[in-house]
């Protein structure tokens, strides 16, 4: 139980540290770092989505950029039509309300993940990795070549979408929104993991034949987890587009999928706060070494190599041991 307490401690440190960072930045009047903390928060949120499929279900999706980018385009396209006062399609108007955008982003990303999952979950291993990659690249090239929403130039969001009662243009408000959504996603992740659904999902990851032999059909459980995973990552994409004021096909590119996997591995696959730790490491390297050299990813690559070779459980595993606790 000592390891369990250590994991709870590091979780608390990460949660409070992520909250403290922008407060300190505000106190010393460095709003840039508030936005940086928001970026960590939203990458972590996207990672929590992937962690549901990858960590709990063992589904190595190399195409989560599709859901991330789809969420981003939902925010961009709805804001675009709200700004221009034109209908999106079939006379439906756009919107500049974040909460509406989130719901649409989650529904569409969940549907996309359900379709892609239904077609790819019959395979496993390298085939699953390649099929998820292929679907995401299809979407990437589609957005790249579709001129209606900017094509390869991307689509700007001129006015950040809003939430009643908050000023989303203020960095702190945007951080608080993102942080709240991240905490909600983490709570959902912990709840699913502890419930019968999570028990079935983690059992299927370890031994699908055994799960079937006690009467749990693996396919449906994996598909449900995959769809939920896509929803969370899609929500993160919608928020990220709003944070950046911009959405482009790059959000859907395979590099983004790779980054999300890296985030999970660095922090600890399957660990509740793994993506939070991983996103902090990634953005930290990007900021510190990115200022020194263009080739900052070299340093990240070295760390990734060390983690894979010597610390399979990522940062959380290094501190709290191999076993997976709350």
């Amino acid at each position: 139980m000592d390891e369990r307490r250590r994991e709870l401690t590091i979780n608390a440190v990460l949660a409070l540290g992520l909250l403290a960072a922008p407060l300190v930045a505000l106190a010393v009047d460095e709003p840039f770092y508030v936005t940086l903390a928001t970026r960590v928060t939203l990458l972590a949120l996207a990672g929590v989505g992937l962690n549901l499929a990858l960590g709990l279900g063992g589904m190595v999706s190399f195409g989560h950029a599709a859901y991330f980018g789809l969420g981003g385009y939902v925010a961009g396209i709805l804001a675009h039509h709200a700004f221009n006062g034109t209908p999106v399609l079939l006379g439906l108007p756009g919107t500049d309300q974040m909460i509406v955008i989130w719901v649409v982003a989650m529904v569409l990303a969940g549907l996309l993940a359900a379709v892609i999952g239904a077609l790819s979950l019959r395979t496993s291993g390298i085939f699953f990795i390649m099929i998820t990659l292929a679907f995401a690249q299809m979407l990437y090239y589609f957005m790249l070549s579709w001129p209606a929403y900017g094509g390869e130039d991307g689509l700007p969001i001129f006015l950040r979408n809003g939430i009643p009662g908050l000023d989303t243009m203020r960095p702190w408000d945007m951080f608080v929104i993102s942080y709240g959504v991240l905490l909600a996603a983490l709570a959902l992740f912990a709840m699913l993991r502890g419930a019968r659904f999570g028990a079935a999902l983690m059992a299927i990851r370890q031994n699908p034949d055994r799960a079937a032999a006690v009467g749990i059909a693996p396919f449906g459980v994996k598909l449900a987890a995959f769809a939920a995973s896509g929803m969370i990552t899609g929500l993160a994409g919608a928020l990220m587009a709003d944070l950046n004021g911009f959405v482009s096909p790059a959000m859907m590119a395979w590099q983004t999928s790779g980054e999300l996997i890296v985030i999970c591995i660095l922090g600890g696959v399957g660990r509740l706060f793994g993506p939070v730790a991983g996103a902090a490491i990634l953005v930290g390297f990007e900021t510190v070494f990115g200022g020194l050299t263009q080739h900052w990813q070299l340093f990240l690559g070295l760390v990734l190599l060390l983690v894979v070779l010597f610390a399979r459980g990522g940062l959380i595993g290094l501190i709290a041991g191999r076993q997976r606790h709350g």
Binding site: A199, A224, Q323
Partner: peptide
Amino acid sequence: IPEYTALRNVMLALQARQGHPYRF
């Protein structure tokens, strides 16, 4: 299920007998 304790291995079978796994 290798990472599950003996107890949780049995609990998994019990939960499957009690009904579908879509309890969240």
